[in-house]
């Protein structure tokens, strides 16, 4: 017994030397992953950690334009937070952010799931073609795609208005300004963000769907289950951890949508599309009140943590089960 146990460790060396060397080797093996992670961790700490700490510090000071140029910023304690939470704009901005986030997540997940199901049913060539299109949409930088959306929806010379006008079903659309009212402006941003978010969701869910053993579906078909029944009973439970992950990521990304709204509407018309992120920038750079802008940013982070805490805990727990 002992001979067999020791044999792999002592490959042609004397026994005492082999034991000490392999103990050292085991310590070295334990330290190796951390050593390899160190450069990435240092960069992350500098690029993400330092700004986060600075943000919290700025939110606790009375930081205006003069402070930016002279470096002196008096301590303000929680005055910025009190100012933000008692601001008349806070509740409308928060409501807009939450409702828009829910609309985006629902749209992305629904369309993503449908596309994932479709990918499963397609033949190999079509599947490759669709996958390539999805990746192209996903890889496009958000600023570039927003500028193109701006051109598409431009009142006099945009393609969308021209198309809707030629169909003649919706009336005269030739001069319709999509960005003039907050509802239609939010719709334009919704289409853009969903278009760019669906590829990730679709491909991830497709990967998850392909892991489900076919035998379950065959068994369900034998039992006489319809398409939606087998979807509900087999697909959803198997996909649950991936769905949770994708939902959390979508909530985080859609809560903090900025580029698209800023470039298209700058928060207008009349702060009608101002979400928390836009409000932070406007407070900081238009009103030159950086302390308050920072406070809004910290409040958004805390809100997001609260929203996702429950789901993150569930995901971690269900990961253990698997």
């Amino acid at each position: 017994m002992t001979t067999i146990l020791r044999a792999p460790e002592s490959s042609g060396t004397t026994r005492p030397a082999a034991t000490t060397r392999s103990a050292a080797g085991r310590r070295g093996t334990r330290a190796l992953p951390y050593v390899l992670l160190l450069p990435a961790a240092v960069v992350l700490a500098l690029v993400q950690g330092y700004p986060l700490v600075r943000l919290v510090l700025i939110s606790l000071r009375s930081y205006g334009l003069r402070a930016l140029f002279t470096g002196e910023a008096p301590w303000a304690g929680v005055a910025n937070y009190r100012g933000i939470l008692s601001d008349s704009e806070f509740v409308p901005v928060l409501a807009r952010t939450v409702v828009f986030c829910v609309a985006l997540v629902a749209g992305t997940l629904l369309i993503g799931m449908l596309v994932a199901l479709m990918l499963g049913e397609l033949g190999r060539r079509m599947r490759t073609a669709v996958t390539l299109c999805l990746i192209a949409a996903w890889a496009m930088p958000s600023v570039a795609s927003t500028l193109i959306w701006q051109w598409l929806f431009q009142p006099l010379y945009g393609v969308v208005n021209w198309g809707l006008d030629s169909v003649r079903v919706f009336g005269d659309f030739s001069q319709h300004d999509w960005l003039a009212r907050s509802g239609s402006a939010f719709f334009v941003v919704w289409t853009l963000v969903v278009w760019q978010s669906v590829p990730f969701v679709a491909l991830t869910l497709h990967a998850g769907l392909s892991q489900i053993p076919r035998t379950y579906y065959e068994a369900a078909a034998l039992e006489g289950a319809g398409y939606w029944q087998s979807f509900r009973i087999i697909t959803i439970p198997f996909l649950r951890p991936i769905l949770l992950l994708v939902t959390i990521l979508s909530v985080i990304w859609d809560f903090t949508v900025f580029n698209q709204i800023w470039i298209l509407t700058q928060g207008g018309p009349g702060s009608g599309t101002t979400t928390l992120g836009i409000w932070a920038i406007v407070k900081a750079f238009s009103s030159q009140s950086y302390g308050q802008g920072a406070a809004i940013a910290v409040v958004s982070v805390l809100l997001l943590l609260g929203l996702t805490a429950y789901y993150i805990r569930r995901l971690l727990r269900s990961g253990d089960e698997l």
Binding site: V35, L38, P39, A40, V42
Partner: peptide, 13 residues
């Protein structure tokens, strides 16, 4: 390992 760490660190910075 040392060479790899150094290379990665330089590349990342």
């Amino acid at each position: 390992v040392g060479a790899a760490v150094a290379a990665v660190a330089l590349a990342l910075t």
